[in-house]
Amino acid sequence: MAYAIAIYFEPAPAQLWSVLLPVVMTLIANQKKDTVFMKILIKLCYPNWALEAFIIANAERYTGVWLITRCSSLMNNGYNVDDWPICLVALFFYGIIARIVAFFCLVITQKK
């Protein structure tokens, strides 16, 4: 996303948007999934997939006492240990889409 933002905006706004957009998306990804709209919006935010992959990857390493904490953390967030490959595919997909958008921004704006 930073590629597309850097191509489309001037340097100062591009820096601001490159920092602000992931922060806002992370705040959205951590909201409660009360309504259908929020469920869809949260699934569209890439930090949701990154956070889920991170928690699952860390949860698989814990044993003993941490097992109870791990299970409650996964249950409270609605994560499944088997969803780790899906998270990686989603992040890979978002990366490809962001690069395609950046390429089209580059072609449309004719920047070198």
Rank of each mutant, 00 (worst) to 15 (best):
K33Y: 08
V19F: 05
V65K: 10
D34H: 14
T26V: 06
I7K: 02
I56M: 02
P11E: 03
E60Y: 05
P13I: 02
N58C: 05
V81T: 14
A90W: 09
G95F: 00
Y8I: 10
A98Q: 04
V36Q: 11
D34M: 10
F54N: 07
V89R: 07
I7M: 03
I55Q: 08
V107W: 11
T69N: 11
A53F: 08
L41D: 06
N30K: 09
Y94A: 04
F54G: 07
C71D: 14
Y62D: 12
M38P: 05
A29Y: 04
N58Q: 06
A98D: 07
F104C: 07
C87K: 01
E52W: 02
R61Y: 13
L74F: 01
C105Q: 09
F92I: 14
A90N: 10
Q110T: 15
T26Y: 06
W84I: 10
F54W: 14
L20W: 01
A29N: 03
N30E: 12
I86P: 01
W49C: 01
T109W: 08
I55F: 08
V19S: 06
P85L: 02
K43M: 12
V107A: 13
W17F: 09
G78H: 07
Q15R: 11
P22A: 05
M38Y: 15
L74I: 03
I7S: 01
I42M: 03
K39T: 04
V89L: 13
T109S: 13
Y3H: 12
P85V: 02
K33N: 11
R70V: 14
A53M: 07
I42G: 01
P13D: 02
L20G: 03
L41Q: 07
V89S: 07
L106G: 09
F104Q: 10
M75N: 15
Y46P: 06
P11D: 03
R70M: 12
A53Y: 08
A102I: 00
K43E: 13
V65W: 09
I5D: 01
V81R: 10
K43T: 12
F37Y: 15
Q15D: 08
E52M: 05
S72K: 10
L106M: 11
I97V: 11
L51C: 10
L21P: 02
A90H: 07
A50K: 04
F37N: 10
P11G: 03
I5K: 01
A2Y: 07
E60H: 06
K39W: 04
L51T: 14
I97Y: 02
N80A: 14
K43W: 09
I96V: 12
T69L: 08
E52D: 05
S72Q: 11
L106Q: 11
L20M: 02
Y46H: 12
T26E: 04
F104E: 06
A57G: 08
A2T: 15
W66N: 13
M25E: 06
A50I: 11
L67F: 09
K43P: 03
L67D: 10
F37T: 15
D34W: 09
Y94K: 02
A98W: 02
Q31E: 14
T35A: 00
L44F: 15
I5R: 01
P13A: 04
D82I: 14
P47V: 03
Y3A: 15
Q110G: 13
N77F: 07
P47N: 03
